[in-house]
Design a protein around this nucleic acid. Sequence first.
DNA 1: CAGATATGTCAACATGACTGTCCCAACGAT
DNA 2: ATCGTTGGGACAGTCATGTTGACATATCTG
Lengths: 167, 167
Amino acid sequence: MPAAAPPLRITPASPLFLREDEIRRGIELLYFGYTAMIRGADAILEAQGFGRAHHRALYFIARRPGLSVGELIGLLGITKQSLGRVLTELQARDLVEQAIGTTDRRQRLLSLTAAGTALETRLFTELERSMARAYGEAGQQAVTGFWSVLMGLVPPEDRPRVEALQD
Amino acid sequence: MPAAAPPLRITPASPLFLREDEIRRGIELLYFGYTAMIRGADAILEAQGFGRAHHRALYFIARRPGLSVGELIGLLGITKQSLGRVLTELQARDLVEQAIGTTDRRQRLLSLTAAGTALETRLFTELERSMARAYGEAGQQAVTGFWSVLMGLVPPEDRPRVEALQD
DNA sequence: CAGATATGTCAACATGACTGTCCCAACGAT
DNA sequence: ATCGTTGGGACAGTCATGTTGACATATCTG
């Protein structure tokens, strides 16, 4: 059972919820909410000499162990040169390891080492703290709305890739 | 009246909506949704030789005309040196102007020129296109949930600053 | 008047993205 | 079996945007 919701006073969207004011409210909350959630992990990363780019790579490798370099590039939306540096550093620190692809031997399938899993868990726990508090304050129904709007922001052609993360 | 919602199949949050899977879903949707919304304006910015930092400054100056440099620094969460470079460039291009503070003459109150307003409007229209589509697909009630969760992500001590943007 | 505050500026540096190029190994089809 | 394509790695240079630190100036406040 979820804890009783503390009083989070949110003005509901009006029937005219496509007015500029309400659009701007969404833009601003998305900006501040996103940066607030991310910020929690920054101290851990900095202590390790890593940045947010390393975090994103760790996150998706943890989420889809055995994914190929190309798939990770697609998820992150960056170039292979940009990812290359990050991946090299994570491997040098024994947080990420590669395996030769089984069906296609050109592929390098990425996974976390035990140390990598440990770090990713610490980072995830930070994000989880923010997100769980927000979910708990807002309630189950609000969470569904939150997901709906965010998925609506993703261009339809990119949605399958996001859905595919959900097993 | 809003257009009939197209079929946006979103699995609702389960009663156990604080499980790791559902937390991860929120993290991922927040990441992909945020980047998708932002991306729309990038082409306009690049054509002008600007980046996202310029966009954020323009956005908040448009939102709160006459705000001081210190207030803008607080909203953006960056140092005055970082903002200084951005602001200098925007002023050199006659998009932003300064006025001496009325009650405190040390303050520089920022506002957009006509050209600045024109550019900000173009950029906003891009964001609005994404956001309005997402709102429309998800519906009024989902928008309220979207706002609730995002506000819950913002640390309570930072919430007044976000609320203050809503007039 | 003295100290604190708002802002500006110069310099050095770090991160993380980009483009462009070249390379090699492995796949796939002819 | 050769050949074009693909997955991945490596090197070089550049750019945007953030950081710290130090110092200057004008103005406010006690």
